[in-house]
Amino acid sequence: MVINIEKPLRLCLDVVETEEHIPSMEMQIAVDVQQFGHELAYKGSAWFDCATWDAFVQGLAAPDTTEVSLVDMDEHFTLTFGVVNGSLELAWEMKKRDTSGAVTTATFRSPIDADTFAHVTLQFKEFERWW
């Protein structure tokens, strides 16, 4: 069960483990952003609550009237769609704090067109749910 988004950033979400007791899934996350002659690559994993996943997918039906976000259970990964200054926008953020207080943050924001949004929405709607 994989989700692949190719633009405006490369994002791959791949299920590696599921938990039935608290319906959730661990996903391997790979992000690649290439912009201004620079590249940002992220690889890691996060757990997503299945009810949160369902709410996100339902929210994709009307991103022009409300902001919709997919956030992992530890609130480190966020993928958001919404309207900013009249344009549909995709935003991704990964933020993690270690025990010493050091914080690592990676953020990407980009306007997207209707075709790109339709492709992303289709990826999430066609995602094979096991719950």
Rank of each mutant, 00 (worst) to 15 (best):
110 S>W: 14
88 L>T: 01
81 F>G: 00
26 E>V: 14
75 E>R: 05
58 Q>H: 06
12 C>R: 12
34 Q>R: 14
44 G>V: 11
37 G>Y: 12
77 F>Y: 08
80 T>G: 03
121 T>E: 13
1 M>Q: 01
22 I>Q: 05
15 V>R: 03
25 M>T: 08
89 E>M: 09
54 D>Q: 07
66 T>A: 15
90 L>T: 04
125 K>R: 13
10 R>Q: 15
103 V>P: 03
9 L>F: 09
56 F>K: 07
49 D>E: 09
73 M>Q: 05
21 H>N: 00
70 L>D: 01
19 E>R: 04
12 C>V: 13
84 V>A: 08
46 A>H: 02
84 V>F: 11
1 M>A: 07
5 I>R: 03
67 E>N: 10
105 T>N: 12
60 L>R: 11
11 L>H: 01
63 P>L: 13
87 S>R: 15
65 T>N: 13
64 D>H: 15
62 A>E: 11
101 G>A: 04
118 A>P: 12
39 E>I: 10
15 V>W: 00
34 Q>L: 05
41 A>T: 14
47 W>Q: 03
4 N>C: 00
125 K>A: 03
71 V>C: 00
69 S>L: 05
46 A>C: 14
124 F>C: 08
84 V>W: 11
112 I>R: 12
51 A>V: 02
131 W>S: 05
90 L>A: 12
16 V>Q: 09
35 Q>T: 08
47 W>M: 06
131 W>D: 13
66 T>N: 12
99 T>C: 01
36 F>N: 14
84 V>K: 12
58 Q>V: 07
36 F>P: 01
55 A>V: 15
105 T>W: 08
54 D>T: 01
33 V>F: 06
82 G>T: 08
131 W>Q: 09
20 E>Q: 08
18 T>W: 00
115 D>Y: 04
91 A>V: 12
96 K>R: 09
42 Y>F: 07
70 L>K: 02
28 Q>F: 00
81 F>R: 01
119 H>Q: 09
24 S>G: 10
16 V>Y: 04
39 E>Q: 13
9 L>D: 02
25 M>V: 04
3 I>E: 10
50 C>F: 07
111 P>H: 10
94 M>P: 00
4 N>L: 06
10 R>N: 14
48 F>W: 02
36 F>Y: 06
80 T>R: 11
22 I>C: 00
36 F>C: 04
19 E>K: 10
22 I>V: 15
18 T>H: 00
76 H>N: 10
69 S>I: 10
66 T>M: 14
75 E>P: 01
124 F>N: 04
76 H>E: 15
70 L>Q: 06
11 L>A: 00
106 A>H: 11
99 T>G: 12
28 Q>R: 14
40 L>E: 09
20 E>I: 08
90 L>F: 07
6 E>Q: 08
23 P>C: 02
42 Y>L: 15
102 A>Y: 06
108 F>Q: 06
13 L>S: 02
85 N>W: 04
110 S>N: 15
62 A>M: 11
112 I>D: 14
66 T>F: 15
10 R>W: 07
22 I>L: 06
111 P>D: 09
2 V>C: 08
7 K>S: 13
127 F>E: 10
68 V>E: 06
108 F>T: 03
37 G>D: 12
77 F>D: 03
26 E>M: 10
111 P>W: 10
98 D>L: 01
128 E>W: 02
51 A>L: 11
15 V>T: 10
86 G>S: 03
24 S>Y: 01
53 W>I: 10
95 K>M: 11
120 V>K: 05
48 F>V: 12
88 L>Y: 06
39 E>R: 14
